[in-house]
């Protein structure tokens, strides 16, 4: 039995702990917003947060995140009627085409903004180049991140934690 907290809710799972988190989210927990794209940490479609940091869930075994706080696209918005500033910016800039990569893009971008309130182009390149968009919406993603950065409200405690994990 492995316990993880997903979007604030503790879940106890009777699954082979070697199973990548991606499939546990999608199959056992039916949180299908997190996508499969490559299975080898190449595309970023499966990006989720573990304690605020972006990770590729397709190569992260369940055992590695036991007891951790996981956030998926379904839990990105602070509340049901209040979208995350990035989600709003994504609509304002009409970012998605097919939309398949966008959960992963948003999670990578959210992790970036949590530690870097006004990212430079270089920062955006560094944080976002693990996420492929086959529809090629990079220009719109960049613009949306910048526009959201202007209105980003972030929790300093969470940001500090994420920083520790990112750099520790």
């Amino acid at each position: 039995m492995t316990a993880i907290t997903v979007n604030g809710i503790e879940r106890k799972l009777q699954v082979d702990p070697a199973t990548p988190l991606l499939w546990v989210l999608r199959e056992q927990l039916e949180l299908t917003g997190t996508k499969f794209g490559c299975g080898m940490a190449q595309c970023g479609a499966c990006t989720v947060h573990v304690n605020g940091a972006a990770i590729r869930s397709c190569v992260t075994p369940l055992a590695a995140v036991a007891g951790q706080q996981i956030t998926t696209i379904e839990g990105l918005a602070p509340s049901a009627d209040k979208p995350h500033p990035l989600q709003k910016a994504w609509i304002d800039e009409q970012v998605p085409q097919c939309g398949y990569c966008q959960s992963g893009q948003l999670m990578s971008a959210a992790a970036l903004l949590a530690t870097n309130a006004s990212p430079s182009d270089g920062d955006i390149n560094d944080a976002m180049s693990g996420n492929i968009c086959r529809c090629g919406m990079y220009g719109r993603i960049r613009k949306a991140i910048k526009s959201a950065a202007g209105v980003q409200q972030f929790d300093p405690a969470l940001a500090a934690l994420a920083k520790e994990i990112n750099h520790g």
């Binding site: 917003g33 379904e74 979208p83 994504w90 009409q94 970012v95 998605p96 939309g99 959960s103």
Partner: peptide, 9 residues
Amino acid sequence: DLPSKVDGT
């Protein structure tokens, strides 16, 4: 179709 493409639904 975009709202559903930013919240995973």
